[in-house]
Design a protein around this nucleic acid. Structure first.
Length: 228
DNA sequence: CCAGACGTTGTT
DNA sequence: GTCTGG
DNA sequence: CCAGACGTTGTT
DNA sequence: GTCTGG
């Protein structure tokens, strides 16, 4: 669940949307098919200001001996974060936001997998809650910054397709999630709730989005298909 | 004490 | 069936 | 998440 | 690194 999403706005719009002070090097291009193992734009707070950078999607804990973890940690269940060695410590100091303007879920229709695109009704960008960590590759000493997207139970709209969905933060909760001072973990975990159905819509898209090689706008075009 | 796991989704 | 790569 | 590979020896 | 199972 939540193994594919889009981020099509410009770098400049991202900087404005998240009040980024430390921009680093511009890198963003329209992304119509972001998939695990790719570099994804993410916002973190360094204690005083918001920073925009890239993290590789698929979290490798700092203590991991190899990078095999990445494929199994693209998502983290919000309900059990504090029970999992891979995520527990990150909740306190390694929270991030992964911006997106839609995500995809696949529904089985008569044995065929059909991708559905979920987005906000006003088509605006939203903030997926994530965690990140830094892993040092023991073979070459290279630092790798990786992340995971937190999931929750689905809202009514998504529940027709799947039983999990990414945690989408309310806009007023974004800074609370990012900031690193006065952290109350219980308060933070309360933010990991399903986004309101009333503010979202969904439509079917081409199966082209299933192949990570397809990265063009065809991935978000509505198609006519009868579901269910 | 050491050894071994450390994860999710979806399907049956 | 299961793992890897994107 | 889905798609695609899944193997070796030896030859070019 | 830290927890669980034996």
């Amino acid at each position: 669940m939540c193994g594919r999403f889009t981020l099509t706005i410009t770098f400049e719009e991202l900087v404005k949307r998240y009040a980024i002070e430390d921009q680093g090097t511009p890198f963003h291009r329209p992304r119509y098919n972001v998939s695990p193992m790719q570099q994804v734009p993410a916002i973190i707070n360094d204690g005083s200001k918001n920073r925009l950078g890239e993290l590789r999607w698929g979290l490798i804990p700092s203590w991991a001996k190899d990078d095999k973890f990445a494929g199994k940690t693209i998502n983290a269940r919000g309900e059990t974060l504090l029970e999992k060695p891979s995520f527990k410590n990150l909740v306190y100091r390694k929270r991030c936001i992964i911006p997106a303007d839609s995500f995809f879920e696949w529904i089985n229709v008569e044995g065929q997998k059909r991708p559905i695109r979920f987005l906000k009704k006003d088509n605006s960008i939203f903030s997926m809650a994530g965690l990140y960590d830094t892993w040092i590759n023991p073979t070459d000493g290279a630092k790798m910054n990786t992340c995971t997207i937190i999931t929750c139970t689905p809202n009514k709209l998504v529940s027709h397709v799947h039983d999990r969905m990414p945690v989408i933060l309310k806009k007023e909760d974004e800074q609370k999630w990012l900031q690193r001072n006065e952290v109350n973990v219980k308060d933070l975990l309360r933010l990991l709730m399903p986004f309101p159905t009333e503010e979202m819509l969904a439509y079917p898209v081409s199966t082209l989005v299933g192949n990570v090689k397809n990265e063009g706008p065809e991935c978000i075009e509505r198609i006519n298909v009868t579901l269910k």
